[in-house]
Write a protein that binds this DNA or RNA. Structure first.
Lengths: 192, 192
DNA sequence: GTCTATAACCTGATAGAC
DNA sequence: GTCTATCAGGTTATAGAC
């Protein structure tokens, strides 16, 4: 891996672990093994490097979600597979985490990838739920957009509760609760 | 308001806005109008002051939740009132926010009030849901604990999505989606 | 209780040699 | 491309006068 790539990867990890405010150029240099001169050769400064790292995290998150949603099978199963996908719940979401960083939210360039990631994710999930309604798999009483927003919120909030309790099981518990509610909204019971 | 109280209040605000890592003693002193000497007279240092501020936020959050849950009326209505209570969704949750602060999570003293706040909140809500089931207001197919965890997660995740979109409406949308799911799980329709 | 002085280190960069 | 030197200001205190 070349120096530029190592800088981005190290920044990605540090943003995930400590956020933008908590991540110093010095820490990035130490983790990546790059010197001060290298960092400022490849990037204009901390915001520029952070932007590259945030975009990389956003792209990866989107790709993972798409992969789960594109699986074959019934809609509810795909949603469940996405929510129950293997995750390190205690680490939290690398993109959602950034919403708590005042310096990221204050900079339109840094905020844009975060905003777009959740807009696309929620939109894609809403489309999937509407598809389920068209197939008769889900009741038509639900608003696909509001339901999708609630489901994504359970994910993001599940991370918060898991970290608060220092227990990944709390995340799974929240997801179970959400999926049970979704199942109760199905017009007929289907095999799980 | 005396100096000690002003120091705690200023720290509360700054922890909410910028987190623990992003809050410096200097910023606390400037906002509170207290000098360096004052701050170190009343508190041993940043962690000690943060602990007092975190406890104050946790106490306030708990009191607000209890007030909503203790209202008269049907269970679903009380839950809806809690979720829809007037909030500044873009500011996020002053306690949930702390789960993203590595220095807070790493210190057992600082983490304890955060953990306890969510444990109590989820437990109380689960009790309320169980009460609704006993009254026949809610279907008995749901696990009260998992449902309560999911609902609190919608709250916390709703803040994340609202901040990502820079729109408080996204929070309301997530809550609407969750309440619609809960309503769909009710054995019979009741006035909203 | 509050004030100023001091300190050792960190932050986020710029400059220029190699 | 990478290195070291340098810098103005911030961080998180401690010490002691008032």
């Amino acid at each position: 891996m070349d120096t530029r790539r190592r800088l981005i990867e190290s920044t990605r990890e540090l943003l995930w672990e400590r956020g933008y405010v908590g991540t110093s150029p010095k820490a990035i240099q130490e983790r990546s093994g790059a010197g001060q001169g290298s960092m400022y050769h490849h990037f204009r400064g901390k915001p520029d490097l952070a932007l590259a790292a945030i975009r990389a995290s956003a792209d990866e998150m989107r790709a993972r979600a798409e992969a789960a949603f594109d699986e074959p099978g019934p809609v509810v199963g795909r949603v469940a597979a996405y929510l129950r996908r293997e995750r390190d719940a205690l680490k939290g979401c690398p993109v959602g985490r950034l919403t708590q960083d005042p310096d990221v939210m204050a900079d339109p360039k840094l905020r844009a990838p975060v905003e777009e990631t959740f807009a696309r994710l929620t939109g894609r999930l809403a489309g999937l739920l509407a598809e389920g309604q068209a197939d008769g798999e889900l009741g038509t009483g639900l608003d696909p957009s509001a339901t999708a927003t609630a489901l994504v919120a359970v994910l993001q909030g599940g991370y918060v509760l898991a970290r608060a309790a220092a227990s990944a099981e709390v995340y799974a518990h929240a997801v179970d609760g959400a999926l049970a509610l979704l199942a109760a909204a199905a017009p007929r019971e289907e095999g799980r």
